[in-house]
Design a protein around this nucleic acid. Structure first.
Lengths: 269, 269
DNA sequence: TCTCAAACGTGAGCACCGCTCTTGTTTTCT
DNA sequence: AGAAAACAAGAGCGGTGCTCACGTTTGAGA
């Protein structure tokens, strides 16, 4: 059987070489992805650069789409790590003992379980939840501007005719939860937010909330989705060049938008 | 010289045939775009379908990128038309005499000039400006969901390694202005919104406002950009499948988000 | 009306692509 | 030690974007 990302550390020499080469392929693919678009990614060029025959590459990735899927999964995990790191760095700039679990090794595929906040209240947090959410929003934009091609892989056009397989949904959710963690925290602290008038929407939000944050009331969950949409939309427009000639650089504008959003989320103290 | 979209009606038989064939090429390209992704668009397949040799196609579009550019320009114009139509339909469901110029023929490349509202107040509008903005937001989502591949062409990943040329910026702006027209209307009606604390951002917004709406105060302009970003982000996430498993169908959620946005824009009566 | 250049369609061809299959070698497991 | 699995290599298939040389058609100016 082939090696899957979640497997234990390789033991045999062949497995080690395989893991090494697999990573080299992904690295080179990422390099080409940065130089051109996702459509230009060429398996032949990758194999050429790595000094192997093109057909040999198919022992590591069954197809071009499978390589892209691997890159997408890695990108989700990397982005989620960046968001977690921002959360931790915000919590304590010096030490590395954040309240949120972030020290876990970057094994993609492993999902960050919420620290069972069902019974007890959230552990004490040095900053406000508003600052926490803002830190995630800023971290996402920084990550996206630093490597736009990877961001486009995640939130841009679904590549050529490519449909995201199941394996990507789990790491994708890790990114979303990073933005709903502060909302869950204020909900546990006893936020008053209530239901939404639309009964159907209310039920839908309650159902969806069980994954993202079981204690977030529908009205706040809807606001959370809207806020996340604004963040994604802002970065997407900026990367897509739609802000050129007027709104660029967009740092100050983004900072203000995030500030307004944290207010609308009811994250004020 | 080749025919450009803004030229007068063709006279000679050859020019007629050229315009016809050019449109057929774009139609077939759009058909293939819907069947697969933008990366799968094949000039050879198009020419094959049209019963011509592949090399003949290059008499009409110098390259694949040029074809894509033409499709993008058309898509922007079509979307802008849809937004204008929604505005007009909202204004008067029966007649075709809206306050906003929409009756102009769909000649792409022609830009909708604001009806010189500098001196006089905006003409009377049957509905509130909030309803007007909401109509645009809903129309954009409907247009996007009806033809996601075209939407992705505009606001998704910049295709393969493709960079939008100048020609696309003008029709792209037509879409943006549709969302800022209501803001300009309330600004002319004497809205009180003022400046933003950040001096640099304020200057930037004042400069950018001269194009989108000269009378929109910075604080409202910033809110307008944020609201547009949220709309784009919402639709992008929905089309990208990020709402699957929880937030889909997203009609009610979107309706609520738009409702909240119109309030944040200060478009209430 | 005639002429000539521009526009046009055709087919061969180049370099690249994703992917498959066969062959022979190397590594691992039993 | 022997069998089975993993691997690298090379040839090959059908597809792509794009170029070029070649004849034909068309339309505008002399």
């Amino acid at each position: 059987m082939w090696q899957t990302p979640g497997m234990a550390a390789p033991r045999t020499a062949r497995a080690i070489a395989r893991a090494e080469l697999t990573q080299q392929i992904k690295d080179e693919a990422l390099r080409q992805l940065g130089a051109a678009g996702a459509g230009e990614l060429s398996l032949r060029a990758i194999s050429r650069e790595l000094g192997m025959v093109s057909s040999a590459l198919y022992r590591y990735f069954a197809s071009r789409d499978e390589l892209l899927t691997a890159l997408i999964i890695d990108a989700y995990a990397d982005l989620a790590d960046a968001l977690d790191a921002a959360d931790a760095r915000f919590s304590d700039p010096e030490q590395a003992t954040p309240a949120t679990p972030v020290a876990e090794p970057p094994t993609p595929g492993a999902r960050a379980e919420p620290p069972s906040p069902a019974t007890r209240a959230e552990p004490p947090w040095p900053g406000t939840q508003a600052e926490r959410w803002a830190a995630a929003a800023v971290a996402l934009r920084n990550w996206a501007l630093a490597q736009p091609h990877r961001y486009s892989l995640l939130y841009g056009t679904p590549v050529p005719g490519y449909r995201a397989p199941m394996e990507t949904t789990v790491p994708a959710e890790r990114v979303m939860t990073a933005f709903f963690r502060p909302l869950e925290a204020v909900a546990l602290a006893g936020g008053p937010a209530g239901d939404v008038t639309d009964a159907g929407l209310n039920a839908q939000l309650r159902a969806a909330g069980t994954l993202l944050g079981p204690h977030i009331a529908p009205v706040r969950l809807a606001a959370g989705v809207a806020a996340l949409a604004q963040v994604i939309g802002f970065v997407t427009l900026e990367i897509g060049g739609h802000f050129r000639g007027g709104f660029e650089p967009a740092d100050a504008l983004y900072a203000r938008a995030v500030d307004v959003l944290t207010g609308s989320l009811g994250l004020v103290d």
